[in-house]
Amino acid sequence: MMNEPALTIKNLMVRFGEVAVLRGVSASLPSGAVTAFVGPNGAGKTTLFHAISGDLLPDKGIVSLRGKPITGMAPWKVARNGLGKMFQDVRVFDSLTVIDNVLLALHEHEGLSVWASLTGVPMWRRHAPKLLQEAESWLEIVGVERPYDRPAGLLSFGNKKLLALARLMAGKFDVFLLDEPTAGVSPVLVERIAELIRKMANRGITIALIEHNFSFVTNVAEHVYLMREGTIQDWGATEEVLAKDENREILIGL
């Protein structure tokens, strides 16, 4: 691979009680590229993402973000190191307005403390129009349906996915983990999401995604890791990996 890896995973192991879900997974995400993780259900893809983002404590192995080890860090610390994540079930903040969802990601983390919120009153008041504008522009880029001042819980599922993407973009993360970005989304939106992902990669953002939609994978991803039963079965350039007969058999049983 050409680029310096943005994220490397070495020999990651996770077990739930008796069941080993990840049995020594190693992978690396080249910087500014799109890497897809594919594989049958139960292969451990989501678990792998959880273990990277700190939502799950791996039993063994090392995760490092631009050379800095982040294994076992709390999720919010991992996020502050620049790794953003979109959950499989999206998880927008339902009672917050659409725009507040994005504003929250825009705020400097220090600005969220009580102290900053009290002493910074003139500050966040003054910046508010500027922040609002920025938040709106992200929402427009992504294409979330207006109006932006209604609770995000009222959005359709597809629009929630877009909102989650807008949130990641506003948060200035440089590595995205997207867990099934196109699942349950209309074909039109799939196309738009593909476009967005390519656009973000062009801006130098490193993207890892889990997908079952193979035309989408060939469309956006340069590299693919094929997972099966908690291990990496194969990896390489997307077309090569997906073209192999034995891999097809794993993926679609053909």
Partner: peptide, 17 residues
């Protein structure tokens, strides 16, 4: 705002730092 986000979905809020 951050409290409300935590109230709605703690893990999503943590994933934003």
């Amino acid at each position: 705002l951050s409290l409300k986000a935590l109230r709605d979905n703690e893990r999503a809020a943590e994933s934003l730092g």
